[in-house]
Design a protein around this nucleic acid. Structure first.
Lengths: 147, 147
DNA sequence: CGTCAAATTGAAAATGGTTTTCAATATCAA
DNA sequence: TTGATATTGAAAACCATTTTCAATTTGACG
């Protein structure tokens, strides 16, 4: 029984006494439709096409809003700026990030998660969330010659 | 046969045609002495005590230099700014980071590393380095009441 | 030892991603 | 409709980090 993203946003807004706006709907639609990790800048460029009047600030604000609403996840990789990923129903996952072309592959590994819990337990640490990123070369980029 | 940090820096500088300066020596000494992850700001404050004339820019520049020389490792956690860690002889390790007090616990887990390689292999990905961070509450902070 | 080109420094200005301000506009409960 | 309140876009502000630039150090060479 998956809830539609638009619907989920609506509920969150209502619950917080916030308002539904054209901009928020449009941004969410494009964000979900993109189906990949987007930076505020990339999303701004995309939204601009169908909603030319959109402002940079609104994209930033909406992205944070979506994160609060549980619709987006904020991620900071090593390239300096924050990216957001649509939080679909599929659970947590980690990333393989190509340092050459920037492509991102997602993966999940239950055994690794368990081992993480073991480590936390040994340190009497209560894990709220975690981040695992493997940086390197994707299959395509390994083939290319350097430089 | 561990090499002294100061010596290692000297060698790097010589090899690169760079110069040894009082500031660099002082910064390195304090950095190594601190024995923990430091942001540029924190290090600047520490160095200021024994070398009041030090400039912010010099600390930033030296930190990058130390990273290039292999003496420091650059890390970006989720708190917005970059921290540096003295790269001792002990190998790679990952982090448990307390979201309340900011304390950092290091750990190593060979089995997790192996599983990461398995994941990479399955995706024909060549790992150059990785980052694993568990965010949550340390033992001390779990005891405190909220707010 | 002096010289002097080249590297380094500190202060201040610049950068660049992100956030805030503010006046104008849109939303929505009544 | 109205009115109180949230939202928007543009521009300014933020803030960690980087760069600029004139003055100062460093170190190879004579």
């Amino acid at each position: 029984m998956k809830k539609k993203a638009a619907e989920q946003l609506m509920e969150y807004l209502a619950g917080q006494g916030l308002k539904s706006t054209q901009q928020r709907d449009e941004i969410l639609k494009i964000f979900v439709g993109a189906g990949r990790h987007l930076s505020a800048e990339e999303l701004y460029a995309l939204v601009k096409k169908s909603y030319p009047g959109i402002g940079y600030a609104t994209v930033y604000r909406t992205l944070k809003l979506l994160a609060e609403a549980g619709l987006a996840e904020e991620r900071r990789f090593e390239d300096g700026f924050t990216r957001y990923e649509y939080r679909a129903t599929n659970g947590h996952h980690d990333h393989l990030i190509c340092t050459k072309c920037g492509s991102i592959i997602e993966f999940e590994n239950a055994r690794i998660e368990e081992l993480q819990q073991d480590v936390a337990r040994k340190n009497k640490f209560l894990v709220q969330n975690h981040k695992l990123e493997l940086y390197g070369l994707c299959a395509v980029c390994q083939g290319k010659k350097n430089r």
